[in-house]
Design a protein around this nucleic acid. Structure first.
Lengths: 333, 333
DNA sequence: CTGAAAGCGCTTACAG
DNA sequence: CTGAAAGCGCTTACAG
């Protein structure tokens, strides 16, 4: 049988209200009474029912997390940051992915309506930005981890795509590279434009530019990176530095260059973006612009928690800086 | 303001009890009454409060998941299998990791006591087997995803470590390899023993064996694999096939062999275990024993769900078969 | 400082 | 077939 607050009240010879006060650290409880209640609680190992507390208070002390996929190489980092942060405050994390077609999303929607969680953390599943915006407008606290430069109209945590790309360009320049190629991310992503712009900006600052024929669309996959590189090679235009918009693409770039007999970094330097675990295991290991994924998860979770604590959610995105991780594919000179 | 069952009852001109009956598909409701209630529900978009339903019924329709780390390369696969399965049945997943020291676990314990979830899925965090066993003994439905051959005294899903290792051995034999080395997993793990035994068994069946000096302890990390391989090479004993007990180790093996000037698979064939995403991106790509991670997650979740449906949890582990994935590091001959 | 009572939003015997 | 009432296990004004 479950131990309830009534049992505690009975044994401590007080009312349930007083037990509740002690439990929640309310003021105006006699010190000795409080002590007695605490003893009883320890003795019988009482823990309040999460559901009953939630129902009475109207809050679940639970956060929902919406993620398009759990198998992406960097998702674990973000999740880990989130879970660690929430657990510290005693909050639970309800995990949703919506990759089982249309009724998948409607099921999620019903959990929202059922008030299953107090706030939502989201990594944008395809084509759900409007939906999320609606939820936010309806009063659900939402913080998005903006991995693709969507710049939503609600609170979010992002990273410095532009500055990160600038850093990549400067690093390649410092290594003496002058002829650049770019394998982009999906064109519809904001981060793709930002990374491209940043890269070009830094080159322009020293009077250089990227030959438009050496900017090839990728799709953030390894195979896409391979195909893109084959296209680059087939132009016959020489290049000695490649900036891939994510690490998976960069892996494909490495593979294609190897197949073509180009030495990395001897003939060509390669820089990726993300710093997923694979990056350090690549051959050669990958120089890349590190996204602070775990920190972004932590920041998003903190934002939501402090909102529950009474603070307003910031309108502007919280932007955490990238950093360049130098490895063999584009070594320091 | 939240729409409640009372509102529906009022508009449909019935009692809350009747609305509840319609909601839960109970028999003995007049067809036209039921229809009227359903219309009102649709009209005002009523969704029952998860907390209130949970409190009244004593069940949360939520499953807890305890995982030691979310950043392991294969964790995403397992999680994805679990979440997909639970979502299909409308169950939520509460995610816990307990890697913030001792109070981390006690916080989890209090969520257990608070009845925050109806059942627990677990990938064993270090030294928690007894604790989990206690929870199961106290009546919490538990299913463990046994990734390390712990063979717990409660329901679990596992894979064929022994047979998988046998397959690795046979594959190497078929490729004409005769002198074998092994980089093991942590010695205290059951799966390490099973993989070692299986490998030896298959060799013994054709009258071969592994030189004991060529069996080196690894620790399931890439660096551990590198160190182990350097030890193997320093023995001066020739070998032409390496079986690493997981893929991360195998990556380290590849790296060390490359550094030592040994060609893979020309001089040495290498086989790993797991088939994590990195495996296909290794250079050369890694032949490995595939663990059906996502399927194991699905199976564990299904087991729990059918238990909620009234079935008893099976005492024996559910064992899903491994399969050999042949890539360049140990090609088919 | 403390208790009785109402309320959170449902479900479930019990009557009819 | 349907409703009134009690109950799930808490919290929170309201009195005193």
């Amino acid at each position: 049988m479950r131990v309830t607050i009534a049992e505690v009240a009975l044994r401590a010879q007080v009312s349930k209200a007083t037990v509740s006060r002690v439990l929640n650290g309310k003021p105006d409880v006699d010190v000795t009474t409080a002590e007695r209640v605490r003893q009883v609680i320890d003795e019988i190992g009482y823990v309040p029912s999460a559901r009953a507390v939630g129902l009475a208070r109207g809050r679940a002390r639970t956060v929902g997390m919406l993620a398009p996929s759990l198998t992406w190489p960097w998702m674990g980092e973000v999740l880990q940051g989130i879970v660690d942060t929430l657990e510290t405050e005693g909050y639970g994390l309800l995990l949703y992915t919506v990759n089982r077609g249309p009724d998948s999303l409607s099921q999620f929607a019903s959990h929202v309506s059922a008030n299953a969680f107090d706030g939502l953390l989201v990594i944008e599943p395809p084509d759900t930005l409007n939906y999320i915006a609606t939820l936010y407008a309806q009063g659900l606290p939402v913080v998005m981890i903006d991995d693709r430069g969507s710049h939503p109209q609600f609170p979010s945590v992002a990273t410095t795509n532009r500055e990160g790309a600038q850093g990549a360009a400067r690093h390649l320049l410092a290594a003496g590279r002058t002829k650049f190629a770019v394998v982009t991310g999906p064109v519809q992503f904001g981060c793709t434009r930002e990374r491209l712009d940043g890269f070009r900006d830094a080159l322009a600052a020293v009077g250089l530019s990227v030959d438009p024929r050496l900017v090839v669309d990728g799709d953030f996959t390894t195979d896409g990176g391979t195909v893109a590189t084959e296209k680059l090679l087939s132009t016959g235009i020489p290049f000695d530095g490649v900036f891939a918009h994510n690490d998976l693409s960069a892996m494909g770039v490495l593979r294609a260059l190897r197949k073509a007999g180009r030495d990395v970094p001897g003939d060509v330097s390669v820089v990726g973006f993300d710093d997923v675990p694979i990056a350090s295991h690549a051959e050669p290991s990958l120089t890349t612009v590190r996204q602070p994924l775990q920190e972004m998860g932590v920041a998003a979770a903190r934002m939501l928690l402090s909102h529950f604590g009474g603070e307003v959610l910031p309108e502007k995105p919280l932007v955490l800086p990238t950093s360049l991780v130098v490895r063999q594919s584009a070594p320091q000179i």
